[in-house]
Amino acid sequence: MNDLDCQHFVEQVTSFLEGGLNPDDEARFLAHLPLCDGCERYLDQIRQTVHALDDLPTTPLSSDARTSLLDSFRTRRP
């Protein structure tokens, strides 16, 4: 089993998180983690990035649009 280097590790992070690595690649990925604080940090920062995106506030529909859609629903449904 060849060692994975950091430059390849960072490109496999999403595949790893998605469960998309084949068993050999996954084993290499996991073997690298405890050896490298930099890559552990990189993986964690990708996770933090996803988390931060999940927290983004949404812009609601304008109240005019909302009112008009509720009107349409009332009119067109039985």
């Binding site: 280097d5 950091c6 430059q7 390849h8 490298c36 604080d37 930099g38 890559c39 940090r41 990189y42 920062q45 933090q48 988390h51 931060a52 995106l53 927290d55 983004l56 506030p57």
Partner: peptide, 26 residues
Amino acid sequence: GHWWEFPALWPTPEQGLLRREVQDLL
């Protein structure tokens, strides 16, 4: 293929990620 320098540590979410500025940046 190994890091010259590790990625810098980030502040914990309480310190950083929830801030409005970060949301604008995202």
